[in-house]
Design a protein around this nucleic acid. Structure first.
Length: 416
RNA sequence: CGGGGAGUAGUAUAGUGGUAGUACGCGGGGUUCGGGACUCCGUAGCCCGGGUUCAAUUCCCGGCUCCCCGACCA
């Protein structure tokens, strides 16, 4: 990637109105563009981060079910069956098309997937089954806020599972719980499985919480054994001993909910008529669960938890590229030529690299932008380094830079 | 949805009842070239509608938008 061709222009000033760190940094660094409250474009760098996160999510999800994609436009009738056309009316965008047909924009997909599953799931022999999608959701949030943390239009990974009995559900649910922990860890986040409101079907659902001052939720947390409970349902308070390990003392902390898993039971299968036949040919409603991860919220959470006063510090797995290659002194033709050669070498080695090839940009500005954008490695090519046939390499999260031979660059990048 | 704050150039800001100034950016010239360098020239703006007034970006009313707190968030 050449910076001069990336549709990229960083801003020197923080946006006036934004208070949330993730909004300030992502807008300044030009990862995102706000069109209206809670509605953002992902510019090339932001788009790449999204791709990285989706890749991490898919890697785990594909072990648990097949991927599909459902529409965002939903007819009223499907939602009326479960009563949610009415009850979700506040958060669901609802309108009439030119023919007068009532249509909603999907805030979630339980109704739709249940409808789809009807002709597919007929017998206990078909179960269990699971399917997921990564798709755009629309929610008419009354108060979108905190940059990417609460939007009106966002990408969600939603997984739905179908079971003949409770034991099967429990087993699968635990698998997903484990997979979610892997996903968040792979995104560079420390998440806590948190007990939360469970609805009619089970005592608890589980939220995956990342500690952050920017979080809207408050949780009671045991740092000793990682037990956590949402304050909304908490039967304990800060300072109490942990009900699980008994020895830890509970903290009350703010947290961002990056994922949620929920046992639905027959809440949707029953009204929609999704049933299976048991061995005796008797119909039973399918037992279901749903599991969600907000992709853009995850981007915002990473920025909230990985930044310093100069900019973002992307965890390598989620960074838009691994290396920021800076050419200092591009006016000199031989320097430019060497930098191009190093850039092409990295590309050839399939190292993800953002090459700051901009002309007439001062060294200081390139440094400032590199810190702001926050790729894991910064590599500098300049007269100074080339005099020794070397480049300078520095990690974003370290102070010290070191010089390495050009031929050893790739090795140095991998040894870190 | 209740409460608070704010809308002046691409961004950040100053200011005025007589149509607006600065910095960065952007275009051009020159000097620079390892932490947002210097310099000269240029470019670009008062959220929308109504009212008061000879005259409104400024005062009044209404609207829209954005941010924050709260409520809401299977």
């Amino acid at each position: 990637m050449r910076q001069s061709e990336l549709f990229l222009k960083t801003q020197r000033e923080f946006p006036k109105d934004e208070v949330a760190i993730n909004a300030q940094l992502l807008i300044r660094a030009n990862f995102i563009h706000k069109l209206m409250a809670g509605v953002y474009s992902l510019l090339p760098l932001g788009f790449l981060v999204r791709e990285k996160i989706i890749k991490i999510v898919r890697a785990e999800m594909n072990k648990l079910g097949a991927e599909m994609i459902m529409p965002a436009l939903h007819p009223k009738a499907v939602w009326e069956a479960t009563g949610r056309w009415e009850t979700m009316g506040k958060v669901m965008y609802q309108f009439k098309n030119h023919g007068g047909q009532e249509i909603g924009l999907g805030p979630t997909h339980e109704e739709i997937i249940t409808e789809i599953a009807k002709p597919i799931i007929n017998s206990y022999e078909n179960l269990p089954l699971a399917i997921y999608q990564i798709q755009t959701k629309f929610r008419d949030e009354e108060r979108p806020k905190s940059g990417l943390l609460r939007g009106r239009e966002f990408t969600m990974k939603d997984l739905y599972s179908f079971h003949a009995d409770q034991a099967s559900l429990e087993e699968y649910y635990e698998k997903v719980k484990a997979a979610y922990q892997v996903i968040f860890k792979n995104c560079g986040l420390k998440s806590y499985v948190t007990e939360a409101s469970g609805g009619d079907f089970s005592k608890y659902s589980h939220e995956f919480m990342v500690e952050s001052a920017a979080g809207e939720d408050e949780i009671l947390l045991c740092r000793l054994c990682a037990w956590a409970q949402n304050k909304e349902i908490a039967e304990v308070k800060a300072g109490d001993h942990c009900p699980k390990c008994q020895s830890g003392v509970l903290d009350k902390v703010n947290a961002i909910e990056v994922g949620n898993i929920f046992k639905l039971g027959t809440r949707f299968s029953e009204p929609v008529g999704l049933v299976y036949k048991d061995k005796n040919g008797v119909n039973h409603p399918v037992i279901m669960a749903s599991y969600g991860i907000g992709i853009e919220r995850l981007i915002g959470t990473i920025v909230e938890t990985h930044h310093d006063e100069k900019g973002i510090l992307w965890p390598e797995a989620t960074a838009p590229a691994k290396v920021h290659l800076l050419l200092i002194g591009e006016a000199k033709a031989e320097l430019k030529k060497s930098a191009e050669k190093i850039y092409n070498g990295l590309v050839k080695e399939e190292v993800e690299v953002l090459y700051d090839d901009r002309e007439n940009v001062s060294a200081g500005e390139k440094f400032a932008d590199a810190d702001l954008i926050g790729l894991p490695f910064r590599v500098i090519v300049s007269e100074k380094t080339l005099a020794q046939d070397k480049v300078e390499i520095k990690k974003r999260n370290e102070k010290e830079a070191k010089l390495v031979k050009i031929g050893d660059l790739n090795k140095a990048l991998n040894n870190n």
